[in-house]
Design a protein around this nucleic acid. Structure first.
Lengths: 337, 337
DNA sequence: TCCGTTTATGAAAAGGATTTCATAAATTTT
DNA sequence: AAAATTTATGAAATCCTTTTCATAAACGGA
């Protein structure tokens, strides 16, 4: 080790860096000077080998290009850094098998635990994960059996609130562009919230006003154009898309057909990614607390690792969502003619 | 180490795991059985401490929320994975000192090299980097001295092309919302490209048509509103913003003032991030080959690491840009009155 | 059968920090 | 001023592997 420029022993340097009060002021300064001059940083591997600190956790995302990724990653990386833990990122590149591969891979790289973001967790997937023998926490998704700790918003309630936002502003003919029916989290749950809001306010459900898509711009566009074709005599006055990206796609579809947002049709999205406030009109949407979800997931995972358990807080914890009102929704006044 | 259940020595276990051909079949099986039974994984810290074979490189970004991050990261992670190398990400959270910290930090974590993305590299910064004693490659930026390998587009030429795109479509009064003047890469260079395009086509330079900003939506908005105030008797018919985000901000500013894009004013951006094709009108822009830049940077860095040199390919390599024509620009027909 | 190779394994060193323990120096107590 | 206590520091052990290096066993050739 180089810091013997200071003319002290190795342990003294270590003490200066770790427990500065246990060393004389004079020596401390001398050592710190050298440390600064040489730009010395202790070797993390050696230090962790000795201290048994956890060194890394893994994060698996289905697709790093998803807009919300950088939001949730921020929360995760801050929590990880605070705990002195390194994050290993694994991008599944939208391929299911790469999602699976991630677990043994990250484990072999030295990750003591894994956070799985957003991906749908089937029963099969769940047994696969448990076989990996490594603590897992879910973010933005949950497991069917509820055996794995998960952090997300209450999709049913959030969806209910989004639709209620429209209903309380006078809308009655409200379409939905939902996620894939196979996806329980962002698909079925959000559809269910939509349906129960309509029921709650005594508005008839019209299957023609339901479209499905896979969260992307194109799917929003396509879904919207289907809804327009199927809406029948009584045109819809509002659309709820279960992702901001789809909402923007839907808005574009309306724009292309000369239908104004929000004057003719109101649009609500889901996520509150940055995109929502950059488009024109800015998007009313359901805000997910991405950063908080990310940091909570990390904290919980680290707890699990330290206590050496695989299921400390079994089940899903719901974090608060909120409706962000922007330009894409407005009151609808029924024609009195 | 627990694997002495197998009745062999520690090095033998190590050999079974690392160079299986150097151990007798029988012993190998015995050891592997125990390894599987006990679910043994070698301690990564100890292994890395010994081998130095750390197989990791660091990536420093000024701000992970920048839209282009996920684009360039994709290229980097693919190249890194192909080489069997782990990426350690360091988000500077927009703070200059965290940018600096990144180098010793990543090094101490075992990174054998670092890619610095997008951040402006002053002379001071450059000496700091060299002091870290670790190979560095730049992406989307370059060093003043040109001593560090860098990958980016030719900003001057790209800028020239963007403005030429407008000029050849009949525009004469063209404003620019440039980057900060202190930023040579995306600031001065792009401004210079703008100026030389105007000169090349014999169009008078009007200082009133130059605004500055820091690449974000708000700065685009603000810059645009300044240009509108200053444009004088002969209103501008086109604006070139040196980032897509700023271009979207500028478009919003125009929208708010009832000026139509592209009917009244054409808008060109820079980057071709996904945002550009999601907004309405979709944005004509200068496409940067983010993925390629990312992967090239990784490949070069790995070369440098393996050859144990700090400056294999000194200087900047320019990758091809291209103009992507979308809805935000159109031909301008001069009033013949 | 004996000797030179090759092969399989173990003992010991190395890697770079932290931590324990012992000791020298400084400080306080009596 | 001597004894007792506290404080600052270094020597050596430790963390867990991998990697020489040495040695014993197995093998082949003459």
């Amino acid at each position: 080790m180089v810091a013997e420029h200071a003319g002290v022993s190795i342990p003294t340097v270590s003490r200066v860096l770790n427990s500065p009060d246990r060393v004389r002021e004079e020596t401390k300064q001398k050592v710190l000077d050298v440390v600064r001059t040489l730009g010395f940083y202790p070797n993390e591997n050696a230090r962790r080998l000795r201290t048994h600190e956890v060194q890394a956790i893994g994060v698996i995302v289905p697709h790093i290009r998803d807009f919300f990724f950088s939001e949730i990653y921020k929360g995760m990386s801050e929590a990880a850094e605070a705990a002195g833990v390194q994050i290993f990122l694994h991008d599944a590149l939208q391929r299911q098998e790469r999602l699976y591969e991630g677990f043994p891979l990250l484990k072999s790289k030295g990750c003591s635990g894994v956070i799985l973001v957003s991906a749908y967790v089937s029963r099969d997937f769940e047994t696969w994960m448990s076989r990996a023998g490594i603590p897992v926490v879910l973010a933005l998704t949950e497991s069917e059996t509820g055996a794995i700790p998960a952090f997300k918003v209450d999709d049913v309630q959030a969806s209910f609130d989004a639709v209620a936002h429209l209903i309380t502003r006078g809308h009655r003919r409200i379409g939905i562009i939902s996620g894939p029916d196979e996806d329980p989290t962002a698909g079925r749950n959000r559809l269910q919230g939509y349906q129960s809001a309509l029921r709650h306010y005594n508005i008839p459900l019209d299957p023609a006003l339901i479209a499905y898509g896979a969260f992307r711009f194109e799917h929003g566009y396509e879904g919207m154009s289907q809804l327009l074709l199927r809406q029948g005599d009584e045109p819809l006055t509002a659309v709820y898309a279960v992702s901001d990206e789809m909402a923007v796609g839907a808005a574009r579809c309306l724009y292309d057909r000369g239908i104004r947002v929000p004057e003719d049709v109101s649009v609500v999205g889901f996520d509150n990614i940055r995109l929502a406030s950059l488009v024109t009109p800015t998007l009313t949407t359901v805000a997910q607390p991405f950063e908080e979800i990310g940091s909570e997931a990390v904290v919980t995972l680290l707890d699990m690792i330290h206590q050496n358990i695989t299921e400390q807080q079994k089940g899903t914890r719901y974090l608060p969502h909120r409706i962000v009102t922007r330009e894409s929704t407005r009151f609808y006044a029924y024609d009195s003619s």
